[in-house]
């Protein structure tokens, strides 16, 4: 098997706020193979964006603090790199698309300038004309209408979908090996969502890059990803190939989530709702974080936090009831 492109192990991140310490990530581990799309799902606030920012080392410190863990990208440890090494990697080896295209582009520069800037940063010697050609090319590639005028437009003159295409063009500009897409369609109209997802899928195939696709929508993950990681309250609940996860979910939380998706191929009376609420990340209970909402909780769940363990090849879950301990 080829070594993974990205491998995150035992990552723990805290935020020190006025109100207390937020345990945003606790002992997170996952990996992405070259050319693979890994979906990362979970409810809002479970730590998906923090995970993505850690990979790019964009966590603001303070208030954030990376307590422990290792992030290997292409065999190099991102957390122990110098600031300059990380900077050179951003945009060139890994790039990111954000949730809200409305606020992700700088209002005072043209979109063409902002895309070109990403190229110039990593190829300082590029001349004016080739740069312009590259930017126009990228605009065409992401299907922006009328690239010649679009490059001279300011962000506020474009629709949300077009801005997200600009963001994608920017992310792809240096041919990154890893593309991180943090809820790339959440802020867009439903009609635009499918277009953007198709675009990401197509470009991923053409470029052969890996993608970390973050979403809180299992439907999006099902249609896009090769494998899925499910997060709950700063921990990983389950990781599996998409088929396996949907066909045979292991973690009770995943089952709850799947129960909450309406499906046409199965007879379901009504949508399942997981009772209870998310635990407070500033004041986590002992034992399993999901225990209070779990129908299958065992006595051990109140004492020990379950570790991620392999249930079968390529399928891991963190649940005492599954691992039988």
């Amino acid at each position: 098997m080829t070594p993974p492109l990205l491998s995150v192990s035992n990552l723990t991140v805290h935020f020190h706020t006025e109100a207390g310490v937020v345990r945003a990530l606790e002992d997170i581990s996952f990996s992405i193979a070259p050319g693979e799309i890994l979906g990362l799902v979970g409810e809002t606030g479970c730590g998906k964006s923090v995970t993505a920012s850690c990979v790019m080392r964009l966590i603001p410190t303070p208030p954030g603090r990376i307590v422990s863990g290792e992030i290997l990208f292409d065999g190099r440890d991102i957390l122990s790199m110098s600031d300059e090494e990380v900077r050179l990697m951003r945009g060139r080896d890994m790039a990111m698309i954000f949730q809200d295209p409305m606020s992700s582009l700088n209002p005072v520069f043209t979109t063409g300038f902002q895309v070109g800037e990403a190229i110039v940063t990593h190829e300082p010697s590029i001349a004016r004309e080739p740069l312009r050609a590259r930017v126009l090319d990228l605009f065409r590639k992401v299907n922006i209408a009328d690239p010649e005028t679009s490059v001279n437009r300011y962000p506020h003159m474009m629709s949300g979908g077009m801005k997200q295409r600009v963001m994608i063009a920017m992310a792809l500009s240096c041919g990154p090996k890893l593309l991180i897409a943090d809820e790339p369609t959440t802020a867009l109209d439903v009609s635009i969502q499918a277009q953007i997802l198709t675009l990401i899928r197509r470009l991923q195939r053409e470029e052969g890059s890996s993608v970390l696709l973050i979403s809180h929508d299992l439907g999006v993950i099902a249609s896009m990803a090769d494998r899925v990681t499910v997060m709950y309250a700063g921990s990983i609940a389950e990781t599996a190939r998409v088929r396996d996860l949907f066909d045979d979910p292991q973690h009770p939380y995943t089952r709850g989530l799947l129960g909450a998706i309406p499906r046409l191929d199965r007879d379901q009376g009504r949508l399942a709702v997981i009772p209870g609420t998310l635990p407070n990340l500033m004041n986590l209970p002992q034992g399993c974080k999901f225990r209070e909402r779990c129908a299958e909780a065992l006595p051990v769940c109140a004492e020990k936090r379950p570790a991620l363990a392999e249930i079968r090849p390529g399928h891991e879950a963190a649940c005492h009831a599954r691992t039988g301990r």
Partner: peptide, 15 residues
Amino acid sequence: RQDYITTAAAKGLTR
């Protein structure tokens, strides 16, 4: 604090 500052940093621009 704005998102576009994160975008700029994510491109690999110097601080």
